[in-house]
């Protein structure tokens, strides 16, 4: 029974990790074709991935979009999460549903919709549309993260601060926000990673000038089939793992995601 369970865990892990492992291993293949199992060993494809101009531009674009979109999502999300948690208003359920809706709507629909709206109002396919689209996509995750943080915070903390003579603005800055800091940081990191990896919606709303890294990668595969893609995938995985590990080390993801109860 114990061994059967262990075997199941190993099988599951293998199933989840297999594509990533295959891609990473192929990245070192000496042949100019993605194939498995690999023959030989070379850093060549990593070099090409890192020096290819479209990838470099796409990487910088992705960083900017991820940073701006997740910051905006945090600003909007914290205001909304606070309102939903603390106040009772008629449109509360509707607002909640609307903000969580992107989870149920395919990314290409959001990308397509954003594209149509943008062209209707005469906005070119510029940065604004890309960022706005990403904000919509990551908002549900940000909201969830902040909502959990708010729920885990004792409302008596704010009451105590008020009773000690602090005005509401001061209470927000000295008690509420510091209490939410882990949730804010965690939400921001998640939003940034999601935005950084987002492809489907981005494909619709980007142009050559604004293309993000995943879109640049897609365009690359349409023309070439060498292991640069695999090398880039390996780098992607490495970067995300490092960020998540740091986030977990300093913020405690279990707490942010609500899988651990911090209240005693």
């Amino acid at each position: 029974m114990k061994y059967a369970f262990r075997a199941l865990v190993v099988a599951l892990l293998g199933f989840v990790l297999l594509p990533a492992v295959v891609a990473c291993v192929s990245a070192f293949d000496t042949r100019a074709l993605i194939a498995f199992p690999p023959q030989g060993f070379t850093w060549r494809w990593f070099h090409r991935a890192l020096t290819y101009e479209d990838f470099q531009v796409g990487f910088v674009n992705s960083l900017y979009v991820a940073a701006i979109a997740s910051t905006l999502a945090i600003l909007v999300g914290s205001a909304v999460a606070y309102a939903i948690d603390r106040y009772d208003f008629a449109a509360k359920r509707v607002l909640e549903a609307v903000l969580l809706a992107p989870l149920a709507i395919p990314h290409f629909t959001i990308g397509l919709g954003a594209l149509i709206v943008a062209s209707q109002v005469g906005a070119a396919r510029g940065w604004f549309v890309v960022v706005a689209c990403h904000v919509v996509l990551v908002l549900p995750f940000v909201l969830r993260s902040l909502y959990v943080s708010l729920k885990n915070m004792d409302p008596r903390l704010e009451s105590a601060a008020l009773s000690l003579g602090a005005k509401p603005g001061r209470v927000l800055l000295t008690v509420t926000l510091p209490g939410l800091a882990p949730g804010l940081a965690g939400g921001w990191i998640f939003a940034a990673i999601l935005s950084f990896n987002e492809f489907t919606a981005s494909l619709f709303v980007t142009v050559q000038r604004t293309q993000t890294l995943p879109v640049a990668m897609y365009n690359y595969v349409r023309e070439y089939a060498d292991p640069s893609m695999a090398a880039l995938s390996a780098l992607y995985i490495l970067l995300t793992t490092v960020v998540l590990t740091l986030a977990n080390r300093f913020l405690g993801l279990g707490r942010i995601l609500g899988t651990e109860d911090v209240r005693h």
């Binding site: 903390l157 009451s159 105590a160 008020l162 009773s163 008690v175 209490g179 800091a181």
Partner: peptide, 20 residues
Amino acid sequence: TPVWERDIGIVFQSYALFPH
């Protein structure tokens, strides 16, 4: 009068100490 101008001190059951 709002809470912050009432000049009161409160001790709650949960103590409500600021964790940070």
